[in-house]
């Protein structure tokens, strides 16, 4: 369980998060939605200890993120950042292999190598495995980064806009993979999503944020109402029911 208590964050006196309280139990997919600048990415990077906490506390399975050894956390929690910049020149296989680093500390065993191969297959990257990351298209690079995050094999996955640059086929495939690990392996995914219909179709819970606050929180059917969406996004969105799921006509 990830417990976020009274977390606020400001950057040069500009408030980014204001008193967030959230409890995310183990298992299932939680989608964070909201307009640009709502604080979704900041919240994820605080949970993943990429930024120091200013106020409040965050714990993962009872371990406070600011004092627990980084390696222990890396075995429980993996994060995919929005700006997937890779500083060094690596092949796809090498990059995905780094996902196993928290477990083997530089000496990969047979299990680690097998998991890397499985991730290559799962994300359609086997044919690209010896290509250098800087020669890939944006979508292919995004898939390699997602594969690396999956490969870390953690109970909690924090994904910041994982569908960036992905085509429809691979976006659907990624969401289905997440659904599968949530259902079969009881792993937990927390995803920042801009495509709200993906959230409606795959998430168990939607947390809608605006201006550093949680506006609504609950199962998709309860959150995705015209009133709530107007409060979050600032305009009226028509919502239809298609195949038993709410479908937002957000582009009209």
């Amino acid at each position: 369980m990830i417990l976020i208590e009274n977390v606020s964050l400001s950057y040069r006196d500009v408030p980014i998060l204001r008193g967030i309280d959230l409890a995310l139990p183990k298992g299932g997919i939680t989608a964070l939605v909201g307009p640009n600048g709502a604080g979704k990415s900041s919240l994820l990077s605080l949970v993943a200890r990429l930024q120091p906490l200013q106020t409040g506390c965050i714990s993962v399975d009872g371990m406070p993120v600011d004092t627990t050894p980084s390696r222990t956390l890396a075995q429980r929690l993996a994060i995919l950042r929005q700006d997937g910049i890779v500083a060094s020149r690596l092949t796809v296989r090498e990059l995905i292999g780094f996902g196993r680093f928290p477990h083997h500390q530089g000496r990969p065993g047979a299990l680690d190598l097998a998991l890397v191969d499985a991730a290559l297959d799962q994300f359609d990257l086997a044919a690209l495995s010896d290509r250098f990351i800087d020669t890939l298209s944006g979508g292919q690079r995004q898939r390699a980064l997602v594969a690396m995050t999956f490969c870390q094999g953690t109970d909690y996955l924090l994904l910041d806009e994982p569908l960036n640059n992905l085509d429809m086929f691979h976006a659907r495939q990624l969401m289905r993979s997440l659904r599968r690990i949530a259902d079969e392996a009881a792993r937990t995914a927390i995803i920042v999503l801009h495509d709200i219909n993906q959230a409606a179709a795959y998430a168990d819970r939607i947390v809608a944020m605006r201006d550093g606050r949680v506006i609504v929180d609950g199962p998709p059917a309860a959150v995705l109402t015209e009133e709530n969406m107007e409060a979050v996004f600032g305009y009226r969105i028509r919502i239809e029911q298609i195949a038993g799921k709410p479908f937002l006509m957000h582009h009209l």
């Binding site: 980084s70 890396a74 890779v86 780094f98 530089g106 000496r107």
Partner: peptide, 21 residues
Amino acid sequence: ARHRLDVIALGRDAATGLGVH
């Protein structure tokens, strides 16, 4: 530290995510 250095070369956020202080 040679293996840890490979991870550090990925950049600050990626290295932190992979458990490097």
